[in-house]
Design a protein around this nucleic acid. Sequence first.
DNA 1: CAGGATCCTTGAGGATACTG
DNA 2: CAGTATCCTCAAGGATCCTG
Lengths: 125, 125
Amino acid sequence: MATSARRGPYFCGIDAAMDVVAGKWKSLILWELHHYGTRRFAELRRGLPGVSEKMLIQHLREMEEDGLVHREVYREVPPKVEYSLTEHGVSLNAALAPLGKWGTERMRRIGAEKVSVNDAVTVRR
Amino acid sequence: MATSARRGPYFCGIDAAMDVVAGKWKSLILWELHHYGTRRFAELRRGLPGVSEKMLIQHLREMEEDGLVHREVYREVPPKVEYSLTEHGVSLNAALAPLGKWGTERMRRIGAEKVSVNDAVTVRR
DNA sequence: CAGGATCCTTGAGGATACTG
DNA sequence: CAGTATCCTCAAGGATCCTG
């Protein structure tokens, strides 16, 4: 099994929350699922420019295991799987909002660019 | 120079904030400095059981560079250096509060332990 | 006391190819 | 379409020793 959250022991609440949010794309997945309500695998893939299939599925599995994401499988051909947030996922997303605001403000302060879709793939150091 | 924040481009505000908070001990340093107002190097070291001197100074330097921490040097013998939060550091700490609350709630849900001082050194995988 | 300088381990994340 | 399975890179973090 791939790496998931430690599930403690933790130094404090932030430590416990970061444990679940850590991972390059998790906060983005959270945002995407919150924004669209429900998303298929390929849709998420397109929504997160630069993510590999491996990392996407790995993060989704971990978030499912951590009770943030619900995975709904439709037994059809071709396969169809829909991801959505659980109530814990929704509440985590809400708890992240102030941090997001702070970050946006910081971007303005230091004059940081937003990543454009075209160079998204090569953008992260 | 050791690794610091990317300073963009970012996908979103959370991305930008996480960039600055990432690092194993940064949120703890933030909390410690906020709680005590001002702390010396050795005091921080004792307050963060398990941190190495290298990581502590590295994180402090990065946080200083990112405008979160103020470093005050007293030209005495023996040396004395005091660290404190800038107003940006204080506001970041405030923005982290809801996440901390969420994490505390999660710890309660999954029955995670708080790390005790004695096993703190060996606790993180 | 408050760091610097080095060397080393480990695991997150990436690239690529394959499958039910 | 929605994943698996491998192999590989690279940098965060740890251990240890040294210094103004």
